[in-house]
Design a binder for these strands. Structure first.
Lengths: 173, 173
DNA sequence: ATCCATTAGTCGGACGTCCTAGTATATAGC
DNA sequence: GCTATATACTAGGACGTCCGACTAATGGAT
C-alpha cells in the first residue's frame, strides 16, 4: 500500500541513484546505464508522490486507489459505470477494481447493482455521500499536493509530455 | 506486487489522463490540473516500467525489490552490509528489507550473520550463487529493458534530470 | 554502576496489485 | 435448440510496502 516515508526522509550524503549509474558504467554496462537510471528514478519518484497523496487522503479514509475509482464514477454522466469500464479507465486489473469497490461500498460511498439486461455485469453507482467526499477530498488534494507540485520552471509540463509519449509508446492510447 | 499488464495493454480510444485533465478544468480546479496530471502520469509510468522489469526478472525467480537488494550487496566492497544500510540505500522501510532479505536468504542468495561488536546489528552477505545471479539477471535486464528504453530523442536524459530535481526537492540527498 | 533513551531488527496486520481458477451469463455455430 | 466459446465478475493466494508494537542491545547521564 503506502508510505509516509518516515524512514526514507533521511538525507543521504549522495544520490544513491547516481551512484548506481557509476556502478553500471564501471561494470561495463554503460550502454544500459541511462535506461536503468530512468527506470530507477521513476520508481523513487512514484514512491515520493504516492506518499504525499496518501497523506493528504488519509483523513478522509481514502487511499489513492479508492479515490481514483471514486473520481471515475464522479465524472461519469450517470454517476454509475460497469466494473469493467472502471478497470479500463484506471488501467488496472479487474480484481483490483473488485477490491477497491468492495471497500468503497463498505464505506457507503458507492453501491453495486445488477445490469438490467446483462446479468453478468455489475453496475457501480456513486452515492450522495460518495459525491460529497469526492469533492471534499479533491479540494484537500488540490490544496495540499496538486497546486504546488515540487517542480521548478518548465519541469512540470515537460514531465507530463515525456510521460505521455512513454505511455503512448506502451500502447495506452 | 506486480504486473504483466495483460489487461491494461488494451488500447483506449483516448488518453484517460488527458481526459482527467479536462474534467479538472471543467470543475474549476484548473489551477491544480497540471499537478494532478504530473502525478497521475507518474503513477501510470511506474506501473508500465515495473511490469517490464518484473517480466524480465521472473525467469530468475527474482522481483525488482529483491533484485535491488541483491545489487546493493553485489556493489558493496565486502559483499556484505548491515540491514539498516540496505534500507537507507534502497530508501525503503526497514520491514521491507527484512522481507526481501528473508526471501533472498531462503533462495540461498544471501546469508545473515551477527555483527561482531554490535549484537543488535544483522550483517547480510551475498553468497557466490547470489553474485552469479546478480550478473546473470542484470545481463537480462540490460538486454531486455534498460538498453532500449521507450524514449525518443532527449526524453531519456531529460526525464532523469527532472526526476533528479524532484528527488532533491523531496530531500533524498 | 545503574537507569533510561536510542537504535537495530522482527512480527503481525492492513492494503493494493497481480495471477490463476472458478462461476454465471451471453452469444455464436451448427 | 443445443453446445462451445467468450465475457463479467469474484475468490484465494503471492508479493511488496507501510505502520505500530515488541525485543534486544547499546551508550550516555547521573
Amino acid at each position: 500500500m503506502v508510505p509516509m516515508l518516515h524512514q526514507a526522509r533521511q538525507q543521504l550524503p549522495y544520490d544513491p541513484i547516481e551512484e548506481a549509474g557509476r556502478q553500471w558504467v564501471s561494470h561495463g554496462w554503460g550502454e544500459a546505464a541511462n535506461g536503468m537510471l530512468a527506470i530507477t528514478s521513476l520508481m523513487r519518484a512514484h514512491q515520493i508522490a504516492l506518499a504525499e497523496v496518501e497523506t493528504a487522503l488519509r483523513p478522509f479514509g481514502l487511499t489513492f486507489a479508492r479515490y481514483e475509482a471514486l473520481m471515475v464514477l464522479f465524472f461519469s454522466r450517470r454517476g454509475s459505470l460497469p466494473m469493467g469500464i472502471i478497470g479500463s479507465r484506471l488501467q488496472v486489473h479487474q480484481t483490483s477494481v473488485t477490491n477497491a469497490i468492495d471497500r468503497l461500498e463498505s464505506a457507503g460511498l458507492v453501491e453495486r447493482s445488477v445490469h438490467p439486461t446483462d446479468r453478468r455485469t455489475t453496475i457501480v453507482a456513486i452515492t450522495e455521500a460518495g459525491a460529497r467526499l469526492a469533492t471534499t477530498a479533491t479540494d484537500a488534494l488540490n490544496a495540499q499536493v496538486f497546486s504546488d507540485p515540487p517542480f521548478q520552471g518548465d519541469d512540470l509540463n515537460e514531465l507530463v509530455a515525456i510521460l505521455r509519449r512513454l505511455r503512448q509508446t506502451a500502447g495506452d492510447f
